[in-house]
Design a protein around this nucleic acid. Structure first.
Length: 722
DNA sequence: AGCACGCCGACT
DNA sequence: GTCGGCGTGCTC
């Protein structure tokens, strides 16, 4: 059922429906007093008393091939999440709700019949001879050549010269987009070696997991393209996961360029699709018409039947983890799926997650390295700018200003990273020190000068900034610290002649905004691009020779055991944006902690050095990859009750836990209040997974002791614990 | 989730 | 004497 019920329910198959009910079919069934949508995960011929019958099987079934039923259930079991909710996440939206919001769209398709007759009308002759040439065509295709052809076609059908049929039409937003020219560079030596290993594994038709570790600009995409071509050649299919499609238009464009010929169909799944487009893409995949699926994390559930290759690009990205509801990690599920379907799984990254790198050293993943940038381009030189003891007027040091100035002089582009949205992270009363907090969340309100408001970045609460301090009545309320909006303003003041643009969640909301900014950068219409971590990802601008990181410390200082890893990875990624063209790049990182190991190793492009140092911290604390974590969050409106219940719940967990599982907490979450709810967390830690899963399987029983007004959320393998 | 049941206070 | 608040339990 698409309801949060922990178990699967059994229904009788009425004789009249028996030939339509298979694994993967969508069915309407009675549940209590209502009718709900469900999906068939298993079929049995055994007779059983007392089952309610399936009420209806719609025409658009089946939705997924039989072997995926087991995969979905495995995912549900691993994350201890109700199978129905898993299906709701996995399948396209709009088919499981009360109202059927999407449906099949039909279109007329015409074909010339075998008849020598010529019609009398000129228009009829014109269209018929065109159609005889083409053999068959959709109504819309004919309409594109001849204006309003429908009445003419109707007459031709009546005359028996043309046949028509209703066919299902796939809504495809990429259908009309122009395709770039395909460049097929020959493989470098590194790429050749990686490809040989991958193709051998593909030919073996067994599961094989790879970590493709290639510095930025080393040509990982070309490796993906070539392996996928080999898989298609062998009659198998490919699944490509990317962190966020909207941010990787260049990658999608290269796939479309390479596989544009009619024989291979690509489906692109992403959050920007309408429900109808998503539904159509899903159905086309389920019918076996699609050979390559490119998509964000939920594409890991796509109903491909003969998978040969799964690519997880930028595997270290946190966006592979769904942060609410069914909290799965698409990278981990991709490995699970690859094992079940005997596919080759490639995790690609310039900065692999510590966990994946560790798994490659342990032998679970085969390690492939691309050492060099293509065309022998050098990695940029990185300098750390120590801010300690300086007084700066704005956010930028003299070194940074000088570097920007000289880059402007020679006409090169610069990229500045500041991982903070808005104008300033908070407003401060100069007289009494008051700051302004979100009433729903334990966080200061970010000040947005352009819109004259203070906004919570977590719950979107917004309010006009006060002109007098509500605490002391003083009138000196000023922004403290800087976000991208303020940085953009500072730059405009320092470099009035420069063309400056900003890229963050606030400027990228309009449809096509991202595309426009990318093309402006590519065409050299921007001198300085300011942005949040968005600018660090997936973009390839050959004109950028200077990258500046304005506040490295904001990334380092999050209260999370992974903050060093995240900082190393983000800094390395953004540094890799410099010098991808003909001229070498340069990177400046401003920090108050220049000796931090993440910064030191990032500045030397030394992944292994970082790994060897960071892995010892993890080992000492039994954090991943040495221990496995589950984060339990108990939340509710009334803070007192939550604290009390969390305490009691923790005790009962402790009582069940046994020796191997450590139960830590309860502790207030770093975001103690979020969207009006008070939150406590309990962390479970274990060196092996089995005892952890045993404890979690007792959770439904333990949960019933919690008051129903409180919510318990469960996060297996959490990525952040805020 | 969504629906029914059941137990308490406030009203015609 | 009944209407409706929400805490609790169940759904093949």
């Amino acid at each position: 059922m698409t309801a949060p019920i922990d178990k699967l329910l059994d229904y009788a198959i009425p004789a009249s429906l028996s030939s339509f009910v298979h694994i993967g079919t969508r069915v309407k069934v009675p549940l209590g007093r209502r009718m709900v949508w469900g999906f068939v995960l298993g079929v049995s011929t055994e007779e059983r008393e007392g089952l309610k019958p399936i009420a209806e099987v719609p025409e658009d079934s089946p939705f997924f091939p039989p072997h995926l039923a087991a995969f979905y259930q495995r995912a549900a079991a691993y994350y201890h999440h109700p199978p129905g909710e898993v299906l709701r996440t996995a399948l396209p939206a709009g088919i499981t709700g009360k109202v059927q919001r999407v449906g099949v769209v039909h279109e007329k398709k015409y074909h010339a019949l075998d008849a020598a007759d010529q019609p009398k009308g000129a228009r009829q002759q014109e269209i018929l001879s065109w159609l005889r040439e083409r053999k068959e065509a959709f109504g819309s295709e004919i309409g594109a050549v001849f204006p309003s052809p429908t009445p003419v076609l109707k007459r031709l059908v009546e005359l028996g010269l043309v046949g028509e049929e209703e066919v299902e039409r796939r809504r495809d937003p990429f259908f009309d987009l122009p395709v770039d020219a395909d460049l097929r560079p020959s493989a470098t030596e590194d790429q050749g070696q990686a490809l040989a290993a991958l193709q051998q594994a593909l030919a073996a038709e067994e599961f094989a997991g790879f970590l493709l570790h290639g510095v930025t600009g080393s040509g990982k995409t070309e490796v993906y393209l070539k392996v996928i071509a080999a898989a298609l050649e062998a009659g198998r299919q490919a699944l490509v996961l990317v962190p966020e499609i909207a941010q990787t238009p260049q990658l999608v464009a290269r796939f479309r360029a390479r596989f544009k010929s009619g024989e291979h169909s690509i489906a692109v799944l992403h959050s920007g699709l309408s429900e109808g487009e998503r539904y159509d893409a899903w159905r086309a995949i389920a019918r076996g018409e699609v050979h390559i699926v490119i998509g964000a994390r939920s594409a890991v559930f796509a109903p491909l039947d003969r998978l040969g290759v799964i690519v997880v690009d930028e595997e270290h990205e946190a966006s592979y983890k769904q942060a609410e509801g069914f909290r799965y990690n698409a990278r981990d599920l991709a490995l699970m799926r690859g094992q079940r379907e005997k596919a080759v799984v490639i995790l690609g990254s310039a900065t692999p997650s510590l966990v994946s790198y560790h798994r490659s050293r342990e032998g679970f993943l085969q390690y492939l390295r691309l050492h060099h940038r293509v065309l022998g381009r050098p990695l940029p030189e990185v300098e750390l700018v120590d801010l300690a003891g300086r007084s700066m007027e704005g956010s930028l040091s003299q070194e940074m200003l000088d570097a920007l100035e000289s880059n402007l002089q020679v006409g090169d582009q610069s990229l500045l990273l500041l991982n903070r949205r808005g104008f300033s992270p908070y407003l401060l009363c100069r007289e009494c020190g008051a700051t302004f907090h979100c009433p729903n969340c334990a966080i200061t309100l970010t000040y947005y000068q352009s819109r004259r408001l203070m906004r919570c970045n977590y719950c979107d609460y917004a309010v006009a900034p006060p002109t007098v301090c509500p605490e002391c009545g003083g009138g000196q309320i000023e922004p403290e610290g800087a976000g991208t909006e303020r940085l953009e303003e500072e730059l405009t003041a320092s470099f009035p002649e420069a063309r400056i643009a900003r890229m963050d969640r606030d400027t990228m909301t309009r449809k096509g905004a991202h595309q426009k900014l990318v093309s402006d950068m590519e065409q050299g219409r921007i001198d300085i691009l300011v942005g949040t971590q968005m600018v660090a990802k997936g973009l390839d601008f050959p004109g950028v020779t200077l990258v500046g990181v304005v506040g490295a410390d904001a990334i380092l200082n999050l209260p999370d055991f992974r903050s060093a890893e995240r900082a190393f990875s983000l800094l390395t990624q953004v540094a890799g944006r410099a010098g991808r063209g003909e001229r070498p790049g340069r990177v400046l990182i401003q920090t108050y902690a220049p000796t931090h190991h993440a910064l030191q190793h990032a500045s030397r492009h030394d992944y292994d050095g970082f790994y060897l140092e960071e892995i010892e911290y993890r080992r000492a604390l039994e954090y991943p990859p040495f221990g496995h974590l589950v984060n339990l969050v108990i939340s509710g409106i009334e803070g007192e009750k939550v604290a009390e219940a969390a305490e009691r719940f923790c005790d009962s967990l402790q009582a069940c836990a046994g020796e191997e599982v450590e139960v830590l907490g309860p502790a207030p979450c770093p975001l103690f209040r979020l969207r009006g709810r008070t939150r406590y967390q309990i962390l479970l830690k274990s060196v092996t997974r089995a005892p952890l899963h045993r404890l979690l399987s007792r959770l439904p029983a333990l949960r019933s002791a919690l008051p129903r007004t409180l919510k318990l959320t469960l996060d297996v393998d959490p990525l952040d614990m805020l």
